[in-house]
Design a binder for these strands. Structure first.
Length: 934
RNA sequence: GGGUGCUUAGCUCAGUUGGGAGAGCACCGCCCUUACAAGGCGGGGGUCACAGGUUCAAGCCCUGUAGCACCCACCA
């Protein structure tokens, strides 16, 4: 084995072998074989967008999923981790469109079919990159089952769902005001609209009365943030209870800059407190106004073209102007006409498209909707009934709140890339919903229709197909073996940002179509942020490619990656500067296992994580530590095999070694037990630290150091076996977290240690906790030894005694138990303290020396004449001061009758014991101080 | 406007049913001791955001305040 852990080459070869041997493959019962495969455990990958490459968030999520998958596989479950990618309609179309445009090709000139061909080309390339990354992460997904949301079978499932929902009356088509993206030229759903708070203006405008003057007023004042929509006003409205406006109800006013007259009406919607208490109603350009308009049968005037320019419904002057340009012109015209009362600064919410980044318009169009209410009710119910459990549980509130106020879902998109809506229009505009064109024709024929049929141009919202992912990937609507075996899935691992987009919709559709929940648990994790706590995003230029941390990257390449294709050029310099500061040398090779361990160790309950390279370095060092402990163990076994040692072991040493062996076994099983409990609770951070602690501190720092002198001296099968067995168990315990290094070490272990000799650690059983291996008595004995050694080491260090200097040790005021332990561990004590003698003193007038306290007894290193007394005196004084403080606190507590009466007896007793110990130690040190001062 | 989460060592974070304030990194001292300097040994460092309350006892429970972050919502 190499002296230094070198993950890179090893990880690649190991993964190739795993995949080639089919270890990731989920097993399906076949008619020919009666073999049983164990209980099913399944997990669906949240399909990443084919548009891009995997970022740190994916890597984080994939690590958690792989850890869970590997764990359950080793626990004997028939495991499926389903991989795949999402076609991501809007994102992909935009990306490819932009790419083509940079080559001088316009989408519209290319035409629908050719454009879609281009997207498929891009998908092949990009999808390949994603699976390469996933492989580099060590993901044990079942590649044979890989799916893409635009695959034929997936599309068939989508159509099936659409047709069924339509026939059940849960999908409808209608002319509604929807969120319209003037850049994409498509409707989008409520969720795709981001409301941002911005500074704007509130314009107060005069609407003159047609009758010249009413109740002493020439005009009414209204406040608006969007003066350009005045041209489409249908009415002015006031609150029915607002007496200020009672005289004006039913009167007509002029719409400024037009020759249209509109009435003043009453509607509950108006808030008398806001603005002037009188509001303009513009049904075509505001969601609230639309509803008011419906209530009052108002005429709806649409002012905008699809790309948000003023259309022919506007007075000639404004036609063709962009909405924001039109606003400026109108404001100026109002001013000129003396119809502008005032302009105030105003803090307002403005809607933006989450993909396009432009301001969204409410826009009146024909769209397809999913009626959400009944679906949502069932989705709420299954969580209330605990058929689905969120971890952490507080996300259930968020989930409920959204579903309880759910709006109908606009599912049609005016895009080219996506699942075409399975609807065919007759020449008269009526339509047929069918699974395919043939079925549509058949239905048309039956209806006696002779004309042509034209399929709907629109495609479905990407999330419509994502919502089917847990069952469409398994072959639904066919009742396949895969579906029967792996549905419902065991757990969903996802980020909170897509609970509404995806999780809720999967539950709605899953429950509706399969009658079962799509998954039993939802594990919700946080976001990966950069070292400064900022969200990682391409536009900010702070993204990291996980494979760059695994395999390393030069500063130049990193800069190139972060700045290429940058949309906001003014950030360029900052990005370059920040990157150079954070990664002056680029990023060294850490290996996949180190990255995975970092993620696992930082994953606490649903909290965002800040990714810092020094953490990664720490866990790379951990891998190195594990690697070297394995190197040591294997080397020792080989040495013994090569040069047998005939020295017979003494009975005392044998007993001592047995204690060490029993101790590490006890610690191992304690560790197994804790890790199992933590993973069941999704406490990956605690699982990681338990493992880290055991491997580094128990196994390496103590166990190996304790047995080392003896395995050099004797040939002791029991100890070598324990050493190797513990190492082997560590490999299996750690494998779900760090799969590569554990496989590599495990393969190098002697065959006899590999249990039932599976060809891979992946398929070995996970270590099983056995209570009878826990040995409290042995742990107490070793703890005594550790305390003692630590006391001596501390004493040495504080008095600057060179590690190479041999010392002698005196123990005073020992009890029988201590004497027994001292005797038992005498050899080890001498070795680990680098002492030549360690004796128990009988008399009180021993030589002067440096004294430390171990528990209740005194440990002294006698002066050899060269030591500075004052250092030791100062040290003791400092320690005494601390003890004094403790004693005061404890005695105050014990003298409080409230405490002694009301606190549980065992708590009081513990305090008493502690008080005695502190006093005892104090006394010992005071005596020592006196002696030294003499 | 409604809701959620956070505030603990220089940094990043654990802290379970209330009873000893912890880890990793960073820092300081000693050491190239034959698995590992990506290491070993030892060490310093915290008014647990603030103010009240409950309790014998509060980082933890209750109330309030401040700051930060996020989510939802139609206020012109």
């Amino acid at each position: 084995m190499d002296k230094v852990y070198q993950p890179q080459a090893m990880e690649k070869t190991i993964y190739q072998r795993w995949e080639k041997e089919g270890y990731f493959t989920a097993k399906l019962p076949s008619s020919s074989s009666q073999e049983s495969y164990g209980e099913a455990w399944s997990l669906m990958i949240p399909p990443p967008n084919v548009t891009g490459s995997l970022h740190m968030g994916h890597a984080f999520q994939d690590t958690i999923m792989d850890c869970l998958t590997r764990y359950h596989r080793m626990k004997g479950f028939n495991t499926l981790w389903q991989p795949g990618t999402d076609h991501a309609g809007i994102a992909t179309q935009m990306l490819v469109e932009r790419k083509l445009l940079s080559e001088g090709i316009k989408r519209t000139e290319l035409g629908r079919e050719k454009f879609i061909d281009k997207i498929w080309e891009w998908k092949e390339q990009s999808g390949g990159n994603i699976s390469r990354q996933l492989r580099r992460m060590g993901a044990s997904v079942d590649w044979q089952r890989e799916r893409f949301t635009m695959d034929k079978e997936m599309s068939a499932a989508v159509t099936e769902v659409f047709v069924r929902l339509y026939r059940e009356g849960l999908i409808y088509r209608g002319k509604r005001l929807v969120n319209w993206d003037p850049k994409l030229l498509s409707a989008i759903s409520d969720l795709e609209v981001i409301n941002k708070e911005e500074k704007g203006f509130l314009y107060t405008v005069r609407y003159p009365f047609v009758d010249g003057e009413v109740a002493g007023k020439k005009h009414l004042l209204i406040a608006t943030t969007r003066p350009e929509t005045i041209l489409a006003d249908g009415a002015l409205a006031v609150n029915p209870a607002d007496e200020r406006y009672a005289p004006f109800i039913g009167k007509m006013v002029w719409v400024p800059m037009t020759d249209r007259k509109i009435p003043v009406i009453r509607d509950e919607y108006v808030d008398p407190e806001f603005g002037t208490g009188c509001v303009k109603i513009t049904p075509a350009h505001d969601f609230n106004d639309y509803q008011v308009g419906q209530r009052h049968q108002m005429e709806i005037i649409n002012l905008f073209t699809p790309d948000a320019m003023m259309n022919d419904n506007a007075p000639k002057k404004y036609r063709g102007l962009d909405r924001f340009a039109a606003r400026e012109v109108i404001v100026e015209d109002l001013r000129q006409a003396k119809l502008l009362e005032k302009i105030d600064d105003h803090l307002m919410k403005r809607p933006y498209g989450d993909r396009s980044g432009v301001v969204i318009e409410p826009y009146l169009t024909d769209q397809w909707f999913v009626k959400a209410e009944t679906l949502a009710e069932k989705a709420i119910q299954v969580v209330k009934e605990e058929k689905i459990e969120f971890v952490p549980k507080n996300w259930e509130n968020t989930y409920f709140q959204w579903l309880e106020n759910i709006q109908d879902w606009c599912i049609s998109r005016q895009l080219w890339w996506g699942h075409r809506i399975p609807v065919w229009y007759k020449e008269d505009g009526s339509y047929i919903v069918a699974n395919d064109e043939q079925e549509a024709k058949k239905i048309a024929q039956e209806e006696g229709y002779q004309g042509t049929l034209q399929q709907d141009d629109d495609v479905l919202d990407t999330w419509f197909s994502s919502a089917l992912w847990p069952f469409s990937t398994l072959g639904w609507p066919n009742n396949t073996e895969a579906l029967k075996t792996f549905y419902p899935t065991s757990v969903l691992v996802t980020g909170f940002d897509i609970i509404f987009f995806w999780v809720a919709r999967m539950i709605m559709f899953g429950v509706h179509f399969t009658g079962e929940v799509p998954f039993k648990q939802v594990y919700v994790h946080g976001l990966v942020r950069d070292g400064k706590g900022d969200k990682m995003s391409k536009s900010k230029g702070n993204v990291l490619d996980p494979t760059d941390i695994i395999d390393g990257v030069s500063l130049d390449t990193l800069l190139e990656k972060r700045t290429s294709g940058l949309m906001q050029h003014h950030l360029l310099e900052k990005i370059i500067k920040d990157t150079k500061t954070e990664f002056p040398q680029g990023i060294p090779t850490y290996g996949c296992d180190a990255l995975r361990f970092t993620f696992i160790a930082m994953t606490s309950t649903g909290r965002d994580i800040r990714f810092e390279l020094n953490r990664c370095e720490g866990y790379r060092n951990f891998c190195n530590k594990l690697w070297n402990s394995a190197r040591f163990s294997i080397m020792k076994v080989q040495q013994v095999a090569d040069t047998p040692n005939a020295t017979p072991i003494t009975e005392e040493d044998q007993q001592m070694l047995s204690l060490c062996n029993n101790w590490i076994e006890s610690r191992l099983h304690q560790t197994i037990n804790e890790m199992e409990q933590y993973i069941a609770k999704y406490r990956f951070d605690l699982m990681a630290s338990t493992l880290y602690d055991f491997v580094w501190h128990d196994f390496c720092d103590w166990y190996i150091e304790m047995i080392k002198p003896f395995i050099n001296k004797y040939e002791n099968a029991e100890t070598l076996n324990t050493l190797l067995a513990t190492l082997e168990s560590i490999c299996r315990l750690a494998h779900p977290v760090v799969p590569f290094i554990t496989e590599e070490i495990w393969q190098q272990l002697p065959r006899s240690e590999q249990g039932n000799a599976q060809p891979t650690i992946m398929c070995q059983p996970y270590p099983v906790f056995q209570k009878n291996n826990i040995n409290q008595k042995v742990e107490e004995q070793i703890n005594w030894l550790k305390d003692f050694i630590t006391t001596v080491r501390s004493l040495r260090a504080k008095n600057q005694i060179k590690p190479s200097a041999k010392i002698t040790l005196l123990l005073e005021n020992t009890e029988t138990q201590d004497q027994q332990y001292h005797h038992q561990f005498s050899t080890l004590i001498l070795l680990l303290c680098n002492a030549e003698q360690c004796t128990i003193s009988q008399s009180q007038d021993e030589k002067l020396g440096m004294t430390g306290l171990c528990r209740h007894f005194k440990v002294t290193i006698p002066f050899d004449g060269t030591v500075d007394l004052s250092t030791e005196i100062a040290r003791i004084k400092k320690e005494l001061a601390q003890l004094e403080k403790q004693a005061t606190q404890l005695s105050a507590k014990l003298n409080n009758p409230n405490y002694t009466d009301k606190a549980p007896a065992e708590v009081v007793e513990k305090t008493q014991q502690k008080y005695q110990l502190v006093n005892h130690r104090k006394k010992e040190l005071e005596e020592q101080l006196l002696k030294l001062q003499k």
